[in-house]
Amino acid sequence: MSTQKVWFVTGASKGLGLSLVKQLLAAGHNVAATSRRLDDLSRAVGTADNFLPLAVDLTTESSVAQAINQTIEQFGRIDVVVNNAGYGQLGSLEELSDAEARTNFDVNVFGPLNVIRHVMPQLRSQQSGYIINLSSIGGFVGNFPGFGVYCATKFAVEGFSEALAAEAKAFGIHVTIVSPGYFRTEFLTSGSLGTPANPIDAYQSVRESQQAHQEQINGNQPGDPEKAVAILIRLADEPNPPLHLFLGQDAFDTATGKITALQQEMTTWKNVTTSTGFDAPALA
């Protein structure tokens, strides 16, 4: 580790967030970490002079602003922001209610936007900083039955992160979108995965996907979370970190499959695509 940094990590009481905080503290970094419940965070991490646990409702701007301010008061600056908090939402687009969909967007999309909005003034004033936004392979590939709303939230994260990278570049601020595949965390447990209140039996593929994720994939994910967070820490020392980083062989293979299929489809339909200009020849 080249230099000691100040990290601000959301969703730190379990999963990748918890592993990240523990590794950061062990390496001597200053860490402010958030959770909805302070007791859960303090119990999971413990206490240390370089650790600031914060109870934060990421969907409430005032709560986020207070957490950012407390971090700056405690440590004097913020070097790395990790928007990790979020949860999965199962259910077909038809069976999920408006409230279920909006709640997933509130946490997964508007939560990190609140953090970005309130941390950017500090990063701009420093003329430096690094924002890591946790997406998912489901933010790049959406063909997972029953995960349409969740994928939509992560597609949104990828979209605003690309724009943020372009906007923040002039201030010396880097942005990376991290898109993990399946890692062996609590993500597929009931506390981190919402299920539809009113399931529709006709969606056999969704029910099969739900059963597979909850009963077969959960606990058998191929990814090691400790290796994943070690990579996140390494990224913060890179002078030119990537905009997109897929984590896991499964994520790499799935992304490669989509890119290949998209290229083939674009080639097949190129004549149609390019036929719409005023000067383009008409299709036969």
Rank of each mutant, 00 (worst) to 15 (best):
M1N: 05
M1H: 10
V6M: 04
W7Y: 12
F8T: 06
T10V: 04
A12E: 00
K14V: 01
K14M: 02
K14A: 13
G17I: 00
S19L: 07
L20F: 08
Q23D: 12
Q23G: 06
Q23V: 07
A27E: 15
R36G: 05
D40I: 03
L41C: 09
R43L: 14
V45E: 03
G46E: 03
T47E: 15
A48F: 12
D49F: 05
F51T: 03
L52I: 07
P53Q: 13
L58N: 08
S62R: 10
S63N: 14
V64Y: 08
A67M: 06
I68H: 03
I68F: 08
N69K: 12
E73T: 10
Q74V: 07
G76I: 12
G76W: 13
G76P: 05
R77M: 11
V82S: 06
N83P: 05
N83Y: 04
N83F: 02
G86Y: 01
G88T: 09
E94T: 09
E95A: 13
E95T: 09
L96E: 08
D98G: 01
A99E: 14
A101E: 07
A101N: 10
T103N: 15
F105N: 10
F105C: 11
N108L: 11
V109S: 06
V109H: 10
V109M: 11
G111P: 06
P112K: 06
I116C: 14
R117F: 13
M120I: 15
M120F: 15
S125E: 14
S125D: 12
Q126F: 14
Q126D: 09
S128D: 12
Y130H: 15
S136V: 00
S136W: 01
G138R: 06
G139A: 05
G139V: 03
F140G: 02
G142W: 00
V149I: 15
Y150H: 12
Y150D: 07
V157A: 06
G159Q: 09
E162T: 11
A163M: 10
A165V: 02
K169V: 04
A170N: 03
F171R: 00
G172N: 05
H174F: 08
H174Y: 07
V175N: 04
V175K: 02
T176L: 05
I177Y: 01
P180T: 00
G181W: 01
F183T: 02
R184K: 11
E186P: 03
E186C: 00
F187K: 05
T189P: 00
T195N: 09
T195H: 09
N198I: 04
D201V: 10
Y203R: 08
Y203H: 13
V206K: 11
S209K: 10
A212H: 12
H213V: 07
E215D: 12
N218A: 11
N220C: 00
D224R: 02
D224N: 14
D224H: 01
E226Q: 12
E226R: 01
K227D: 07
K227R: 13
A228I: 00
I231R: 01
I231T: 09
L232T: 00
I233F: 00
P242W: 08
L243F: 11
F246G: 01
L247I: 13
G248V: 06
F252M: 03
T256A: 14
T256H: 09
G257S: 15
G257N: 15
K258W: 04
T260P: 01
T260N: 13
L262W: 08
M266Y: 12
T268M: 14
T268K: 15
W269Q: 03
S275N: 06
T276P: 00
P281V: 12
P281E: 03
L283S: 03
A284Q: 09
